[in-house]
């Protein structure tokens, strides 16, 4: 068995294990850290496939930024597990329905395109630059979907700010312009206290 196959099974096993632990961990901080581990192993799988751009972007965006914010929020919460578990049974039917639906959809995909027909990854030429290849494809063939996705993200950013922005009156804030304009002579007066010469 080639080394890459062994590595594939290793990373996949850790990925599945940590993904399971994300939903079973009792401590939400642990769950977040397991999710980080899962992302790492997914990135490793991408890199094994020769898609180093996707793997590194996964680490950069999800592990480096998104999960930091997740951890930031989760640490601030004082999550009481007993209270969350109270409603468990009432949500169970809905959860099960969604799970069954997901499994059915996946089954439909695999049934219509059996695994044998999914082409095996092509052999990667040595020193292939898949970052460039991806860029060329995104900016030529998929230009419109790409730009539309970017605009949707921009709208989402503006909407998130607009929804959470509250202008409260009576709060004290710094006037940055005034702070920047301050010079030493505005803050300090030197007073000559020497005795006047007779």
């Amino acid at each position: 068995m080639p080394v890459t196959t062994l590595l594939f099974y290793l990373f996949s096993a850790i990925l599945l294990g940590s993904a399971t632990l994300v939903i079973t961990a009792r401590n939400p901080v642990y769950a977040t850290l397991y999710l980080v581990l899962a992302f790492f192993n997914a990135a490793a799988l991408f890199i094994l496939l020769g898609a180093e751009f996707l793997g590194l972007i996964l680490i950069l965006v999800y592990v480096g930024a998104v999960m930091v914010l997740f951890l930031f929020v989760v640490m601030m919460l004082d999550i009481n597990l007993t209270r969350i578990k109270e409603g468990f049974l009432s949500y169970l039917p809905l959860g099960l329905a969604i799970a069954v639906l997901g499994v059915l959809e996946l089954a439909a995909v695999f049934w219509s395109a059996p695994l044998g027909r999914i082409p095996a990854p092509a052999a990667i030429p040595a020193n292939a630059d898949n970052t460039r290849a991806l860029g060329v494809l995104l900016y030529t063939q998929y230009l419109y979907p790409f730009e539309i996705a970017a605009v949707i993200l921009l709208v989402a950013i503006i909407a998130a700010i607009a929804l959470t922005l509250r202008r409260r009156s009576g709060t004290k804030t710094q006037n940055i312009g005034a702070q920047m304009a301050v010079r030493a002579k505005d803050r300090m007066h030197l007073v000559d206290l020497r005795e006047p010469k007779p």
């Binding site: 751009f53 972007i57 680490i59 950069l60 480096g64 630059d129």
Partner: peptide
């Protein structure tokens, strides 16, 4: 590596 710049940016943030 080909994506060295991306790699150092990704890892340095960890």
């Amino acid at each position: 590596m080909n994506a060295g710049l991306l790699y150092v940016l990704a890892i340095a943030g960890l």
